[in-house]
Design a binder for these strands. Structure first.
Lengths: 205, 205
DNA sequence: GTCTATAACGAGATAGAC
DNA sequence: GTCTATCTCGTTATAGAC
């Protein structure tokens, strides 16, 4: 596709989503404005409204793309065909990567902002957690059936504990600017689900 | 003290803190305004500025009172002189109570807003977590020494996992409006620290 | 698809009367 | 301590030219 794309220039809509996504993760839905994005991209606020009529539509698009990318990452983990403990480790790794440039998980941040979100964004946040928990539930059931891990309680309950545990570990580690704090909490969390201690995938701990 | 206090009328500063605290817990630091508080109290914005010159000072006062009340609750748990597992259960109960009227923990919410907070508020948020983890570390060491629980890893690392685990459980349970979801995650979390299953203190299942 | 200009509103904050 | 009035600025959004 020989479009008019210049070196390093995605189209404006995608670059807008890049900046908006980062700002939501850093400052929350009520902590940034169209002016912030426009300044960073070097375009006018009016141009942003051409691509995303209102902040609600922008927010929906940001969540949609983020959730889609997250889902792709889960598919990729499945494709590699590892055992359940390694899958859980790879899952936690996605969260750790978010933290490396001091971001919060997008949907964890939006969970905090939940009461102030437009309805369409609320549904998307809930959907993100539901999808994650469904995938984790499958992995945990796989691991239980293969004997690779022993669950206390149901797989879906354990999945919920993993999601909320990782979100909380991000939430608290971020003010400290301390990735090791996240890693320690994540390792404990997975060890409470997995029988044997899993490799953590990161050498920073 | 026969002040001019009418029935049900705390002084304005205290009532302002009540409303501001609830709004921060529900909507975040950037999700409410002086106008919101003034409308709810039936006074003018200017009157609020008399008691709290700026939003930063109001925010500091809100955290200060919250952290002080939280610290009092920990002292009260110690005063009852129970064993470590019961103390942990009582600690989790404080978090569960926050959720019952759909609030987030104040400092969990402010941890999400961290990048947008004035410096004095940032220090107070960190201090809140530090104090909680210090208290929990003491309880866990007590429990280990009494043989009431067996820790994997250090007491302070376990304390950090408990704080972040409970904060995350609140964060994720709140969009679902589901207290049981918090309770299940909290129970699993404490069971991963305490050897025997502790009583949860709540009958909600 | 991007711009300038501006509307319409809300935010945090101050002055000064009562 | 509380009020009205006002200021200044930021935010979301639209109109219409290029």
């Amino acid at each position: 596709m020989a479009t008019s794309r210049q070196p390093g220039n995605e189209d404006t809509a995608a670059r807008t989503l890049d900046v908006a996504e980062r700002l939501v993760q850093l400052r929350g839905y009520n902590g940034f404005s169209y002016a912030d994005i426009a300044a960073e991209l070097g375009i006018s606020k009016a141009s942003l409204h051409y691509h995303f009529p209102g902040k609600a539509e922008l927010g929906e698009a940001v969540i949609g793309r983020y959730a889609s990318r997250f889902a792709d990452a889960l598919v990729e983990i499945d494709r590699r065909g590892a055992e359940a403990p390694a899958k859980l480790d790879a899952y936690a790794r996605i969260y750790a990567d978010v933290l490396t440039d001091r971001r919060m998980c997008l949907c964890g941040m939006l969970a905090a902002d939940y009461d102030t979100l437009p309805e369409s964004m609320r549904r998307a946040v809930i959907g993100f957690f539901d999808d994650n928990e469904a995938w984790l539930t499958g992995v945990l059931e796989q691991g239980r059936d293969e004997g690779a891990l022993h669950l206390s309680g149901s797989a879906s309950e354990a999945a919920q504990a993993i999601v909320s545990g990782l979100e909380g570990a991000l939430l608290v580690a971020r003010p400290y600017g301390d990735v090791a704090r996240f890693q320690a909490a994540a390792r404990r969390l997975l060890e409470s689900v997995v029988g044997a201690a899993p490799r953590t995938g990161a050498s920073s701990g």
